[in-house]
Design a protein around this nucleic acid. Structure first.
Length: 298
DNA sequence: CACTTGACCTGTCCGC
DNA sequence: TGCGGACAGGTCAAGT
C-alpha cells in the first residue's frame, strides 16, 4: 500500500483516514532515522527509545499535520511539507519473527527508485509492519510532543474550513479583519484558515468566481457566501477523490488518480478555461504561482 | 500592516 | 550535450 501525498488538507485528511485504519493499536518496535534533522530536537537514539513499545491509540489531523496519539499522553506529530510521504508496508510474513517483511520497490516522483533513496525514517511495529517516511526535499518534520506542545501547535493554526464552526459569518469576520490583504495571501495563511495550500486556494477562488488578487475588504456579502461554499465544496470533493496529484502521484495499484483530473485552474496556465474557453492566466501572487480565469473571476 | 525575498533541500524542465 | 535559471504541494525569519 503506497500513500503518496502532495499534501494540503485533502491529501493529509486522506492519509489520516487510511493510516487510522491500519495503524490503530500498533506498537512501535524500532525506529531508524536516516535524516536526523527531521526529528530535531531529539537525537535518533533518544527518539527511538521514547517510541519503543508505545502503542498508537488514535490518528488525527489538524491543519496539514498528522497526529499519532500514543498510550503515554505523547503524540507523534508529522508535517509532510512539500514532498513528504508516509508509506505503509503491511507485514507479509505474518508469524515469522526471523525474516523481516520484504520491501516493495517504491514509486516516487514517477520514477522507480531505490526504496531508501529518499527515506528519512522507518518505523517498525511489533507485528512486522512498517511505516516509511520519505521526503525528497527534506522540509518535512516529525516531532514527539507532549500535551502542552500539541496545544501550542493547535493555537498556532486558525479555522478548520470543514468544521461546523467555519460558518459564512466566521469567514466574513476574517475578511473584514484583513481588508487590505489579497485573498490569495489570506487563504494561504495557516494562522487564519488552516489547511488550504496553493492548489486549493486557486481552485476555491475559481469555484467562487472571484479573482484571488481581490482584497478581503472588497467582497460583497454574496461573494462571501460563494467563497465559503466554494472552499468547502472543493475540499470535500478533493477528499472524496483521495486528494490531488499535481505531478506523478500513483496509487498502490499504479493508477494515476484522484482529484488532478478535476482541477479547473491549477497547473493550467495558458490553457482554455473549462467554463468560457478564455486562456487561464498564471501570475505571481503572495509569492506563489497563481492561476485564474481573467473572464470568469472578477 | 502588508508585501517581498531568502532560506531550508533536491529535482525537473526549458532556453540558449 | 552542457549549463544556468526558474520553478515545485510549505513555512519561517528578516527586510522594505
Amino acid at each position: 500500500m503506497i500513500f503518496n501525498t502532495m499534501p494540503e488538507l485533502p491529501e493529509v485528511e486522506t492519509l489520516k483516514r487510511e493510516l487510522g485504519q491500519v495503524l490503530m493499536g500498533k506498537r512501535f518496535q524500532s525506529v531508524k532515522i536516516f535524516w536526523p534533522k527531521a526529528i530535531v530536537p531529539l537525537s535518533p537514539a533518544r527518539f527511538a527509545r521514547e517510541l519503543k513499545n508505545r502503542k498508537i491509540e488514535s490518528v488525527e489531523r489538524r491543519a496539514k499535520i498528522i497526529f499519532l496519539n500514543l498510550d503515554n499522553r505523547k503524540t507523534l506529530a508529522i508535517h509532510l511539507k512539500m514532498t513528504g510521504q508516509l508509506i505503509y508496508y503491511p507485514n507479509h510474513n505474518q508469524g515469522s519473527t526471523l525474516e523481516p517483511a520484504k520491501v516493495e520497490p517504491l514509486i516516487l516522483g514517477g520514477h522507480s527508485e531505490d526504496p531508501t533513496k529518499y527515506t528519512r525514517a522507518i518505523f517498525s511495529f511489533i507485528d512486522g509492519s512498517r511505516l516509511y517516511f520519505n521526503d525528497l526535499r527534506k522540509f518535512g518534520w516529525i516531532r514527539l510532543l507532549g500535551p502542552r506542545a500539541i496545544a501550542d501547535l493547535h493555537k498556532h493554526h486558525g479555522q478548520e474550513p470543514l468544521a461546523p464552526g467555519f460558518t459564512v459569518s466566521v469567514l466574513g469576520t476574517i475578511l473584514d479583519r484583513y481588508p487590505q490583504r489579497t485573498l490569495k495571501a489570506l487563504l494561504l495563511d495557516q494562522t487564519i484558515i488552516a489547511g488550504l495550500g496553493n492548489i486549493y486556494v486557486d481552485e476555491s477562488c475559481f469555484a467562487a468566481r472571484i479573482n484571488p488578487g481581490r482584497r478581503g475588504g472588497t467582497l460583497a456579502n454574496m461573494e462571501k457566501r460563494k467563497l465559503h461554499h466554494a472552499i468547502r465544496a472543493v475540499l470535500a470533493l478533493a477528499i472524496k477523490h483521495g486528494g490531488t496529484s499535481a505531478r506523478d502521484y500513483r496509487r498502490s495499484d499504479g493508477a494515476r488518480g484522484g482529484f488532478a483530473a478535476h482541477l479547473k485552474v491549477y497547473g493550467r496556465g495558458a490553457e482554455p478555461c473549462r467554463r468560457c474557453r478564455t486562456l487561464i492566466r498564471k501570475i505571481k501572487l503572495a509569492g506563489r504561482g497563481t492561476h485564474f480565469c481573467p473572464r470568469c473571476q472578477k
